[in-house]
Design a protein around this nucleic acid. Sequence first.
DNA 1: TGACTTGTAATCAAATTAAATACATGATCG
DNA 2: CGATCATGTATTTAATTTGATTACAAGTCA
Lengths: 147, 147
Amino acid sequence: MAISSRFTVGVHILALIELNKEEKTSSEFLAGSVNTNPTLIRKIMGMLKKAGLIEVQPGIAGAKLAKSPSDISLLDVYKAVDVVHENELFSLHENTLYECIVGRNIHDSISPVLSAAQLSMEKELGNVTIQDIIQDIVQKESGSGNP
Amino acid sequence: MAISSRFTVGVHILALIELNKEEKTSSEFLAGSVNTNPTLIRKIMGMLKKAGLIEVQPGIAGAKLAKSPSDISLLDVYKAVDVVHENELFSLHENTLYECIVGRNIHDSISPVLSAAQLSMEKELGNVTIQDIIQDIVQKESGSGNP
DNA sequence: TGACTTGTAATCAAATTAAATACATGATCG
DNA sequence: CGATCATGTATTTAATTTGATTACAAGTCA
Protein backbone atom coordinates (compact mmCIF):
# COMPACT_ATOMS: atom_id res chain seq x y z
CA MET A 1 0.00 0.00 0.00
CA ALA A 2 1.12 3.52 -0.62
CA ILE A 3 -0.39 6.96 -0.82
CA SER A 4 -1.23 7.84 -4.42
CA SER A 5 1.39 9.67 -6.42
CA ARG A 6 -1.23 12.34 -7.13
CA PHE A 7 0.20 14.06 -4.08
CA THR A 8 3.84 14.18 -5.14
CA VAL A 9 2.80 14.90 -8.72
CA GLY A 10 0.78 17.83 -7.38
CA VAL A 11 3.87 19.20 -5.68
CA HIS A 12 5.83 18.72 -8.90
CA ILE A 13 3.20 20.65 -10.84
CA LEU A 14 3.16 23.58 -8.44
CA ALA A 15 6.93 23.84 -8.25
CA LEU A 16 7.27 23.74 -12.01
CA ILE A 17 4.55 26.28 -12.63
CA GLU A 18 6.40 28.67 -10.35
CA LEU A 19 9.88 27.99 -11.68
CA ASN A 20 8.59 28.30 -15.22
CA LYS A 21 6.50 31.40 -14.54
CA GLU A 22 8.15 33.43 -17.31
CA GLU A 23 6.73 31.02 -19.88
CA LYS A 24 3.28 29.57 -20.41
CA THR A 25 3.01 26.24 -18.60
CA SER A 26 0.64 23.86 -20.39
CA SER A 27 -0.56 20.48 -19.17
CA GLU A 28 1.34 18.96 -22.07
CA PHE A 29 4.58 20.51 -20.85
CA LEU A 30 3.94 19.42 -17.26
CA ALA A 31 3.13 15.90 -18.39
CA GLY A 32 6.49 15.72 -20.13
CA SER A 33 8.35 16.74 -16.99
CA VAL A 34 6.41 14.36 -14.75
CA ASN A 35 6.54 11.59 -17.35
CA THR A 36 2.86 10.87 -17.56
CA ASN A 37 -0.03 11.87 -19.79
CA PRO A 38 -1.69 15.29 -19.97
CA THR A 39 -5.06 13.91 -18.87
CA LEU A 40 -3.77 12.94 -15.48
CA ILE A 41 -2.11 16.33 -15.13
CA ARG A 42 -5.34 18.11 -15.98
CA LYS A 43 -7.26 16.00 -13.50
CA ILE A 44 -4.83 16.93 -10.74
CA MET A 45 -4.77 20.56 -11.87
CA GLY A 46 -8.54 20.57 -11.63
CA MET A 47 -8.25 19.53 -7.99
CA LEU A 48 -5.56 22.12 -7.28
CA LYS A 49 -7.75 24.75 -8.89
CA LYS A 50 -10.80 23.74 -6.89
CA ALA A 51 -8.70 24.06 -3.72
CA GLY A 52 -7.68 27.59 -4.71
CA LEU A 53 -4.02 26.80 -5.21
CA ILE A 54 -3.73 27.60 -8.90
CA GLU A 55 -5.48 29.62 -11.55
CA VAL A 56 -6.22 27.99 -14.88
CA GLN A 57 -8.63 29.02 -17.59
CA PRO A 58 -10.25 26.72 -20.14
CA GLY A 59 -8.55 26.95 -23.48
CA ILE A 60 -5.75 29.20 -22.26
CA ALA A 61 -2.31 27.72 -21.76
CA GLY A 62 -0.36 28.97 -18.77
CA ALA A 63 -1.40 28.11 -15.24
CA LYS A 64 -0.35 30.39 -12.39
CA LEU A 65 -0.16 29.87 -8.67
CA ALA A 66 -3.10 31.50 -6.92
CA LYS A 67 -0.98 32.31 -3.84
CA SER A 68 2.62 32.91 -2.97
CA PRO A 69 4.54 29.61 -2.95
CA SER A 70 5.47 30.34 0.65
CA ASP A 71 1.75 30.30 1.48
CA ILE A 72 1.17 26.83 0.03
CA SER A 73 2.15 23.96 2.31
CA LEU A 74 2.53 20.38 1.22
CA LEU A 75 -0.42 19.65 3.49
CA ASP A 76 -2.51 22.00 1.36
CA VAL A 77 -1.56 19.96 -1.68
CA TYR A 78 -2.21 16.69 0.12
CA LYS A 79 -5.68 17.85 1.10
CA ALA A 80 -6.36 19.28 -2.34
CA VAL A 81 -5.69 16.05 -4.21
CA ASP A 82 -7.61 14.03 -1.64
CA VAL A 83 -5.22 11.12 -1.26
CA VAL A 84 -6.17 10.15 2.31
CA HIS A 85 -9.46 10.92 3.97
CA GLU A 86 -9.71 12.11 7.56
CA ASN A 87 -9.22 9.20 9.93
CA GLU A 88 -8.84 6.74 7.10
CA LEU A 89 -5.11 6.22 6.82
CA PHE A 90 -5.49 2.92 8.67
CA SER A 91 -8.02 0.20 7.96
CA LEU A 92 -10.05 -1.39 10.70
CA HIS A 93 -11.73 -4.73 10.30
CA GLU A 94 -15.48 -4.20 10.41
CA ASN A 95 -18.11 -6.09 12.40
CA THR A 96 -15.87 -7.47 15.07
CA LEU A 97 -17.67 -9.75 17.50
CA TYR A 98 -19.79 -7.86 20.01
CA GLU A 99 -19.89 -10.86 22.33
CA CYS A 100 -16.12 -10.58 22.87
CA ILE A 101 -14.62 -7.93 25.13
CA VAL A 102 -11.96 -7.11 22.57
CA GLY A 103 -14.34 -7.32 19.63
CA ARG A 104 -16.73 -4.77 21.07
CA ASN A 105 -14.09 -2.30 22.28
CA ILE A 106 -11.08 -2.50 20.00
CA HIS A 107 -12.45 -0.01 17.49
CA ASP A 108 -12.96 2.75 20.04
CA SER A 109 -9.74 1.96 21.85
CA ILE A 110 -7.43 2.01 18.89
CA SER A 111 -9.03 4.76 16.79
CA PRO A 112 -7.62 7.68 18.83
CA VAL A 113 -4.13 6.26 18.44
CA LEU A 114 -4.53 5.90 14.70
CA SER A 115 -5.90 9.41 14.40
CA ALA A 116 -3.01 10.84 16.37
CA ALA A 117 -0.52 9.02 14.16
CA GLN A 118 -2.16 10.25 11.00
CA LEU A 119 -2.37 13.82 12.26
CA SER A 120 1.27 13.73 13.26
CA MET A 121 2.23 12.75 9.74
CA GLU A 122 0.04 15.47 8.27
CA LYS A 123 1.46 18.06 10.63
CA GLU A 124 4.92 17.37 9.20
CA LEU A 125 3.60 18.06 5.74
CA GLY A 126 2.18 21.33 7.01
CA ASN A 127 5.65 22.48 8.03
CA VAL A 128 6.99 22.50 4.49
CA THR A 129 5.96 24.86 1.71
CA ILE A 130 6.25 24.84 -2.05
CA GLN A 131 8.74 27.64 -1.61
CA ASP A 132 10.93 25.34 0.51
CA ILE A 133 10.86 22.72 -2.22
CA ILE A 134 11.67 25.28 -4.89
CA GLN A 135 14.55 26.67 -2.85
CA ASP A 136 15.93 23.21 -2.32
CA ILE A 137 15.72 22.43 -6.02
CA VAL A 138 17.47 25.67 -6.94
CA GLN A 139 20.12 25.14 -4.30
CA LYS A 140 20.81 21.57 -5.42
CA GLU A 141 21.07 22.87 -8.96
CA SER A 142 23.56 25.61 -8.09
CA GLY A 143 25.69 23.16 -6.17
CA SER A 144 25.64 20.62 -8.94
CA GLY A 145 28.21 22.32 -11.12
CA ASN A 146 25.63 22.91 -13.83
CA PRO A 147 26.12 26.20 -15.66
CA MET B 1 -5.71 4.00 -0.28
CA ALA B 2 -5.33 2.79 3.26
CA ILE B 3 -2.86 0.80 5.30
CA SER B 4 -3.85 -2.87 5.38
CA SER B 5 -6.03 -4.01 8.25
CA ARG B 6 -3.38 -6.66 8.98
CA PHE B 7 -1.99 -4.06 11.38
CA THR B 8 -5.12 -3.42 13.42
CA VAL B 9 -6.03 -7.10 13.27
CA GLY B 10 -2.56 -7.86 14.68
CA VAL B 11 -3.25 -5.56 17.60
CA HIS B 12 -6.62 -7.23 18.11
CA ILE B 13 -4.97 -10.65 18.17
CA LEU B 14 -2.35 -9.65 20.73
CA ALA B 15 -4.83 -7.95 23.02
CA LEU B 16 -7.18 -10.90 22.93
CA ILE B 17 -4.46 -13.48 23.53
CA GLU B 18 -3.50 -11.58 26.66
CA LEU B 19 -7.01 -10.96 27.92
CA ASN B 20 -7.89 -14.59 27.28
CA LYS B 21 -4.68 -15.97 28.78
CA GLU B 22 -6.47 -18.24 31.22
CA GLU B 23 -7.89 -20.19 28.30
CA LYS B 24 -6.37 -21.65 25.17
CA THR B 25 -6.62 -19.14 22.33
CA SER B 26 -6.95 -20.83 18.95
CA SER B 27 -6.91 -19.21 15.52
CA GLU B 28 -10.51 -20.29 15.17
CA PHE B 29 -11.47 -18.38 18.29
CA LEU B 30 -9.52 -15.31 17.22
CA ALA B 31 -11.10 -15.41 13.77
CA GLY B 32 -14.53 -15.33 15.39
CA SER B 33 -13.70 -12.25 17.42
CA VAL B 34 -12.11 -10.40 14.49
CA ASN B 35 -14.84 -11.60 12.13
CA THR B 36 -12.64 -13.09 9.48
CA ASN B 37 -11.36 -16.57 8.62
CA PRO B 38 -8.78 -18.58 10.53
CA THR B 39 -6.41 -18.65 7.58
CA LEU B 40 -5.88 -14.92 7.68
CA ILE B 41 -5.39 -15.07 11.43
CA ARG B 42 -2.76 -17.79 11.08
CA LYS B 43 -0.97 -15.81 8.41
CA ILE B 44 -0.79 -12.77 10.67
CA MET B 45 0.12 -14.93 13.66
CA GLY B 46 2.96 -16.34 11.61
CA MET B 47 4.29 -12.83 11.09
CA LEU B 48 3.88 -11.96 14.78
CA LYS B 49 5.71 -15.14 15.69
CA LYS B 50 8.54 -14.43 13.26
CA ALA B 51 8.92 -11.00 14.85
CA GLY B 52 9.18 -12.57 18.30
CA LEU B 53 5.94 -11.14 19.64
CA ILE B 54 4.06 -14.38 20.26
CA GLU B 55 4.77 -18.03 20.85
CA VAL B 56 2.77 -20.57 18.89
CA GLN B 57 3.46 -24.21 18.25
CA PRO B 58 2.21 -26.25 15.32
CA GLY B 59 -0.69 -28.42 16.32
CA ILE B 60 -1.05 -26.93 19.79
CA ALA B 61 -3.92 -24.57 20.47
CA GLY B 62 -3.15 -21.64 22.73
CA ALA B 63 -0.83 -18.85 21.62
CA LYS B 64 0.97 -16.79 24.26
CA LEU B 65 2.63 -13.40 24.15
CA ALA B 66 6.40 -13.76 23.98
CA LYS B 67 6.93 -10.55 25.97
CA SER B 68 5.08 -8.47 28.49
CA PRO B 69 2.27 -6.50 26.79
CA SER B 70 3.90 -3.34 28.10
CA ASP B 71 6.98 -4.24 26.08
CA ILE B 72 5.11 -4.53 22.78
CA SER B 73 4.41 -1.23 21.08
CA LEU B 74 1.98 -0.77 18.22
CA LEU B 75 5.01 0.09 16.14
CA ASP B 76 6.38 -3.38 16.83
CA VAL B 77 3.14 -4.82 15.47
CA TYR B 78 3.16 -2.47 12.48
CA LYS B 79 6.68 -3.55 11.61
CA ALA B 80 5.91 -7.21 12.24
CA VAL B 81 3.02 -7.39 9.82
CA ASP B 82 4.91 -5.38 7.22
CA VAL B 83 2.16 -3.05 6.12
CA VAL B 84 4.35 -0.14 4.99
CA HIS B 85 7.96 -0.44 3.92
CA GLU B 86 10.60 2.02 4.98
CA ASN B 87 10.31 5.21 2.96
CA GLU B 88 7.42 3.87 0.96
CA LEU B 89 4.37 5.42 2.55
CA PHE B 90 4.23 7.92 -0.30
CA SER B 91 4.48 7.13 -4.00
CA LEU B 92 6.76 9.07 -6.28
CA HIS B 93 6.29 9.13 -10.00
CA GLU B 94 9.25 7.41 -11.60
CA ASN B 95 11.41 8.54 -14.50
CA THR B 96 10.68 12.23 -14.29
CA LEU B 97 12.31 14.24 -17.06
CA TYR B 98 16.02 14.79 -16.53
CA GLU B 99 16.05 17.70 -18.96
CA CYS B 100 13.79 19.69 -16.63
CA ILE B 101 15.11 21.34 -13.48
CA VAL B 102 12.16 20.08 -11.47
CA GLY B 103 12.14 16.66 -13.10
CA ARG B 104 15.75 15.97 -12.21
CA ASN B 105 15.60 17.29 -8.63
CA ILE B 106 12.10 16.75 -7.27
CA HIS B 107 12.79 13.23 -6.08
CA ASP B 108 15.76 14.22 -3.92
CA SER B 109 14.08 17.41 -2.73
CA ILE B 110 10.83 15.92 -1.58
CA SER B 111 12.03 12.55 -0.26
CA PRO B 112 13.39 13.86 3.06
CA VAL B 113 10.06 15.54 3.75
CA LEU B 114 8.14 12.37 3.02
CA SER B 115 10.48 10.33 5.19
CA ALA B 116 10.11 12.74 8.07
CA ALA B 117 6.33 12.60 7.79
CA GLN B 118 6.30 8.81 7.75
CA LEU B 119 8.69 8.58 10.69
CA SER B 120 6.59 11.02 12.66
CA MET B 121 3.54 8.82 12.17
CA GLU B 122 5.48 5.72 13.15
CA LYS B 123 6.88 7.42 16.22
CA GLU B 124 3.34 7.96 17.46
CA LEU B 125 2.67 4.26 17.13
CA GLY B 126 5.81 3.61 19.13
CA ASN B 127 4.38 5.57 22.05
CA VAL B 128 1.49 3.19 22.61
CA THR B 129 1.74 -0.38 23.86
CA ILE B 130 -0.54 -3.40 23.81
CA GLN B 131 -0.84 -2.89 27.55
CA ASP B 132 -2.25 0.61 26.93
CA ILE B 133 -4.84 -0.81 24.55
CA ILE B 134 -5.77 -3.56 26.99
CA GLN B 135 -6.11 -1.08 29.84
CA ASP B 136 -8.31 1.13 27.73
CA ILE B 137 -10.52 -1.80 26.78
CA VAL B 138 -10.87 -2.89 30.39
CA GLN B 139 -11.55 0.65 31.53
CA LYS B 140 -14.21 1.21 28.86
CA GLU B 141 -15.76 -2.06 29.91
CA SER B 142 -15.90 -1.16 33.59
CA GLY B 143 -17.37 2.22 32.77
CA SER B 144 -20.00 0.72 30.51
CA GLY B 145 -22.25 -0.52 33.23
CA ASN B 146 -21.63 -4.11 32.17
CA PRO B 147 -21.58 -6.50 35.12
C1' DT C 1 -11.84 28.92 -39.73
C1' DG C 2 -8.23 26.16 -37.80
C1' DA C 3 -4.87 24.98 -34.49
C1' DC C 4 -4.27 24.52 -29.76
C1' DT C 5 -5.87 24.34 -25.12
C1' DT C 6 -8.59 22.85 -20.92
C1' DG C 7 -12.26 19.93 -18.91
C1' DT C 8 -14.29 15.56 -18.34
C1' DA C 9 -16.16 11.01 -19.08
C1' DA C 10 -15.43 6.29 -20.13
C1' DT C 11 -12.71 2.29 -20.69
C1' DC C 12 -8.73 -0.86 -19.75
C1' DA C 13 -4.93 -3.30 -17.66
C1' DA C 14 -2.18 -4.05 -13.61
C1' DA C 15 -1.64 -4.44 -8.78
C1' DT C 16 -3.31 -5.27 -4.21
C1' DT C 17 -6.41 -6.98 -0.59
C1' DA C 18 -8.88 -10.22 1.84
C1' DA C 19 -11.89 -14.44 1.40
C1' DA C 20 -12.03 -19.03 0.45
C1' DT C 21 -10.37 -23.62 -0.45
C1' DA C 22 -7.30 -27.32 -0.02
C1' DC C 23 -3.97 -30.01 2.07
C1' DA C 24 0.39 -31.32 4.60
C1' DT C 25 2.13 -31.73 9.20
C1' DG C 26 2.15 -31.77 14.33
C1' DA C 27 -0.18 -32.90 18.92
C1' DT C 28 -3.29 -35.18 21.88
C1' DC C 29 -6.32 -38.53 23.75
C1' DG C 30 -9.40 -42.36 23.88
C1' DC D 1 -2.64 -46.60 16.92
C1' DG D 2 -5.84 -43.96 14.77
C1' DA D 3 -9.28 -40.22 15.01
C1' DT D 4 -9.59 -35.52 15.87
C1' DC D 5 -8.20 -31.03 16.14
C1' DA D 6 -4.61 -27.68 15.66
C1' DT D 7 -1.07 -24.92 12.92
C1' DG D 8 1.42 -23.76 8.57
C1' DT D 9 1.19 -22.75 3.70
C1' DA D 10 0.06 -22.50 -1.11
C1' DT D 11 -3.29 -21.41 -4.49
C1' DT D 12 -7.36 -19.38 -6.42
C1' DT D 13 -10.98 -15.98 -6.63
C1' DA D 14 -13.47 -11.61 -6.39
C1' DA D 15 -13.44 -6.78 -5.35
C1' DT D 16 -11.13 -2.52 -5.27
C1' DT D 17 -7.95 0.91 -6.66
C1' DT D 18 -4.51 3.12 -9.57
C1' DG D 19 -2.85 5.14 -13.48
C1' DA D 20 -2.82 4.88 -18.74
C1' DT D 21 -5.42 5.59 -22.58
C1' DT D 22 -8.89 7.17 -25.67
C1' DA D 23 -12.40 10.15 -27.02
C1' DC D 24 -14.66 14.29 -27.36
C1' DA D 25 -16.95 18.75 -25.93
C1' DA D 26 -15.96 23.45 -25.35
C1' DG D 27 -12.99 27.69 -24.81
C1' DT D 28 -9.20 30.87 -26.97
C1' DC D 29 -6.95 33.26 -30.33
C1' DA D 30 -4.24 34.18 -34.48
